[in-house]
């Protein structure tokens, strides 16, 4: 690579950091070091739930040095996201990237953990994946893994691409000392729900189950290549599963036409979008495939 190309690369990364920095804010909501946040609009900020350690006296510092008071509009510990509302419209909304995120691309983690200004860390995207059970025990539908260093105060800040546009929000809240990025699309969907309802709705059937191998002879009726299902071992009284006549001993194998082989997949299917809806649940009963419509409850 020529010397000029290195300089060009360096300058364009600095430009990206500067661009992203305009919508990266400082979030002061805990006793120790402040963390970062991303301005969603002029008066709302998305940050990591775990950095919000108090309900009162939350301060946000935007680019340019303007400080605002903020209140907690909604939070979801399961996804480690929280939305803050500012008392004055002072933030510069972030630009979200609409280009495909790819393994190997260069990225920058941007943060504003102090009044001194933005900080950054360079890396590449190592992996894209999900759903994954986090270190806290909850479930993250999708994630981006990169090798940026998440320094203290980087949680809640954006991961940006070469154009300085947001591809995700960084957090170390799932596992101490190790960071992960929640993709922008998922994060924004959760943010909208938090702004609207203050929390995330999660679907609920009311069953307890164990992963089992589907008997060979029963797989024929499935007409798809599926090895496992969830054997229902208990149904809560008065639950949606009970109302739909699911029975102990049924093997749950699919929801809305999609295979369910493990608990994580069932968890992912029971998102807030399906609460109150009647969805087709496929079970094997006595070796035969049955489809029962279940009105999904809310946890």
């Amino acid at each position: 690579m020529s010397k000029n190309a290195f300089i060009e690369l360096s300058e364009s990364m600095a430009d990206s950091a500067e661009r992203a920095g305009r919508s990266t804010v400082m979030v002061d909501a805990r006793k120790r070091l402040p963390a970062s946040g991303i301005a969603l609009s002029s008066d709302s900020v998305l940050t990591a739930d775990h950095v919000i350690e108090r309900d009162q006296d939350i301060r946000v510092l935007v680019d340019g040095g303007v400080e605002a008071s903020a209140r907690l509009a909604g939070r979801d510990p399961g996804s480690d996201l929280a939305v803050l509302k500012l008392d004055k419209s002072s933030a510069d909304p972030a630009k979200v990237s609409n280009t495909r995120v790819r393994v190997g691309q260069f990225v920058l983690a941007i943060a504003r953990p102090s009044k001194k200004g933005i900080e950054s860390s360079f890396g590449t995207i190592n992996a894209l994946g999900g759903p994954v059970r986090t270190g806290r025990g909850g479930m993250l539908e999708q994630y981006i893994k990169s090798d940026v260093v998440s320094y203290p105060g980087f949680s809640g800040g954006p991961l940006v691409d070469g154009a300085g546009e947001v591809i995700g929000i960084n957090t170390s809240g799932f596992r101490s000392g190790s960071a992960i990025t929640i993709p922008a699309g998922l994060a924004l969907k959760i943010a909208q729900a938090l702004e609207k309802s203050g929390r995330i709705r999660r679907g609920y059937l009311g069953i307890r189950s164990q992963t089992v191998e589907i008997p060979q002879e029963a797989r024929v009726s499935l007409k798809r290549d599926q090895t496992n299902g969830l054997l229902i071992v208990s149904i809560e009284s008065g639950s949606p599963a009970s109302a739909a006549a699911l029975m102990v001993g049924d093997i749950l194998v699919g929801i809305s036409g999609e295979a369910v082989e493990h608990h994580d997949e069932l968890f992912a299917r029971l998102s807030g979008d399906v609460v109150g809806l009647s969805i087709p649940v496929e079970v094997l009963r006595g070796g035969k495939l049955l489809t029962l419509n279940v009105v999904v409850g809310e946890r």
Partner: peptide, 18 residues
Amino acid sequence: SSRTEAVRKGLNAGLISL
């Protein structure tokens, strides 16, 4: 030895309702 492991084992043992 961790929350994730406790949840995994709890799910597999049919101790967690979904």
